[in-house]
């Protein structure tokens, strides 16, 4: 491995660590649900390691617990994870043009809300080593948390779990606020997102929408409106 690639990989691992800490707390509570679905610690570890989707896994384990059909599981995965389609699409634009298809596919597999967040925040083109490093650390902690949750159940006091689970949102905030400060259009989009997301969770009828569906619908609507009102200037920062 070239020294530069190595240091980018290590940088990714370092940034993946706080993500992994948040993951551990969340996947710990996910493990408690997985145990109800009948998963063993190993199944939980491997399933979480290969899937890496909080809302998606939560939905699937709840379905397994009630003995739902395979078709329902497919539908659940599609709806809760459709946002990854948008995120991967956004990432296709972050690569230097000489990045191989295999690496692009592997980076796509790294896409979670958080790893995507830090990848899109990476200055300039995204070197694949960065998400790989972040993914390795955070996914291992995500999978471990699930397994520990399945075995240990409810040993952590609830207020500790609550405090930990806020970590993920803290990272989201750290990603969206700096560009909001620099670019007023981003800032206004973020405020609109907060407001509409909250409205959709309290208004009658609309609030029946699952959180996954709400995320997809609002993302498409708000980003489309922002793109119409304030189109970004085309600048090609591909130096390759």
């Amino acid at each position: 491995m070239r020294t530069e690639t190595r240091s980018i990989f290590l940088h990714g691992m370092r940034d993946g660590f706080p993500i992994g800490m948040g993951y551990f707390a969340v996947s710990f509570s996910l493990g408690i649900i997985a145990a109800k679905a009948g998963l063993t610690a190993w199944m939980g570890f491997v399933g979480s390691f290969l899937t890496r989707a909080s809302a998606g896994e939560y939905g699937v384990y709840s379905l397994i617990a009630i003995g739902a059909s395979y078709v329902e599981v497919v539908a659940m995965c599609m709806v809760t994870n459709l946002r990854y389609l948008l995120m991967s699409t956004a990432l296709t634009q972050k690569f230097a043009s000489n990045v191989s298809l295999l690496k692009r596919i592997l980076v796509a597999c790294c896409v979670t809300d958080e790893v995507f967040g830090i990848s899109i925040a990476y200055p300039g083109n995204l070197p694949p080593a960065y998400p790989f490093g972040a993914m390795l650390v955070s996914t291992t902690m995500w999978a471990s948390g699930t397994a520990v949750g399945i075995v240990a159940g409810e040993i952590l006091p609830p207020h500790v779990v609550a405090a930990f689970s806020v970590a993920l949102y803290g990272m989201f905030i750290a990603i969206i606020i700096p560009p909001s400060k620099r670019d007023r259009a981003v800032g206004l989009s973020v405020i609109a997102s907060f407001l509409l997301s909250w409205l959709c969770s309290v208004l009658p009828t609309v609030r029946e929408m699952s959180a996954g569906t709400r995320t997809i619908v609002l993302t498409i609507v708000i980003a489309a409106v922002a793109a119409c009102v304030k189109p970004v200037k085309i600048e090609d920062h591909d130096e390759a």
Binding site: D113, F116, F172, P179, A185, V190, S193, L218, A223, A226
Partner: peptide
């Protein structure tokens, strides 16, 4: 432009 706004909007909606 749409893809430029997507990440920030998604993360904000999820937060």
């Amino acid at each position: 432009s749409f893809l430029y706004y997507v990440p920030y909007v998604t993360l904000a909606v999820m937060t």
